[in-house]
Design a protein around this nucleic acid. Sequence first.
DNA 1: GCGACCATGTAATCTGTTACATGATTAC
DNA 2: GTAATCATGTAACAGATTACATGGTCGC
Lengths: 182, 182
Amino acid sequence: MDAKTLCLGVLSREPATGYDIRKAFQNGPFSHFCGAGFGSIYPALRKLSEDGLIEECPSSPDVRENKKIFSITPAGRKALCDELANPAPLGFEIMRSEFMFRVFFAHMMPQDRIQALFNERKALYHDKLDIIDNLLKKNSILPGEKFIAEMGKTLITAALQFLEKNTETLFALTSPEIGQQP
Amino acid sequence: MDAKTLCLGVLSREPATGYDIRKAFQNGPFSHFCGAGFGSIYPALRKLSEDGLIEECPSSPDVRENKKIFSITPAGRKALCDELANPAPLGFEIMRSEFMFRVFFAHMMPQDRIQALFNERKALYHDKLDIIDNLLKKNSILPGEKFIAEMGKTLITAALQFLEKNTETLFALTSPEIGQQP
DNA sequence: GCGACCATGTAATCTGTTACATGATTAC
DNA sequence: GTAATCATGTAACAGATTACATGGTCGC
């Protein structure tokens, strides 16, 4: 899914600035399953604008002059629908994970490094759960959005519980000091 | 995690060809958390070879001439360790998911399309579970590898159960024919 | 006044994906 | 003999990440 489609998706919910879109990816309803940085978002907005899929809202006196609020056009909504309905290039994206790659090679890392990795990851999971819980508190939430928030919550909770239950077992089976072992 | 590190990781377990590496990503122990295609693997192998991190095994009469079996060098093992231990650029990779993006916009899709999406996804999960179950049957499996296989199994099972339980609820809340709704 | 946050954008680089191009071996 | 699988690679293109560069507003 490219940055253009992601931006279109965010804008289909409500008008937003590039900055707002990034927040939606960082702390908002999209944060647990996709993302993009400024370097992807701004060029995407320019292209979408050129293609007439989004448009800049007329500036009003109460917003700063350099602030650009974009809204989706009917053509943009159509383009998003088409993209959503298309045969899907699939790709199994769940868990394309650097964390898992590292832990896979636990025998090549000192135990304190793995411990730090686990702690970081648990903290990250807790952050994501907080974000999702806040989303679920809102009363106006569409079915798809709710479904995905709950799915995220379920999966992150499962991951967290797995880490909590199995860390000791992993440590019991790896040597504390070993770093460069084959 | 770039293709070079991924290849190095695969080769740290046993010597392999580019083709073997791809299989490790498609059906092997790495399949549920990372991946790469030929277009990434072969250039990566060339670079790793140039840097002395891997080397081509001397050709023996029992293997075909154009087949190149690579093995990791001590320098390569060191490079992998360094990469594993480094402060981690983090990035929350769990669930960077096109599936979730689509379902999030369920209200913009006809119900039969969502149904198809769900069926595809469930089939994919079952495939992944089969692969993982086969991995877990092996008796010689390192602790990190076992941990990650079991974590994958746990998470995929949780995802599958979530889909099974909540599909009807989602469908009850979305209209069957609506496609292009705001 | 200062730090945190809002806000936009560009340019270089890196890297991955896709399609193409080729051919050997194995099992039926 | 023919289809599936093994096996290697290149080239063009699309795309993202990273760092850079700039400046306004708000609360303390």
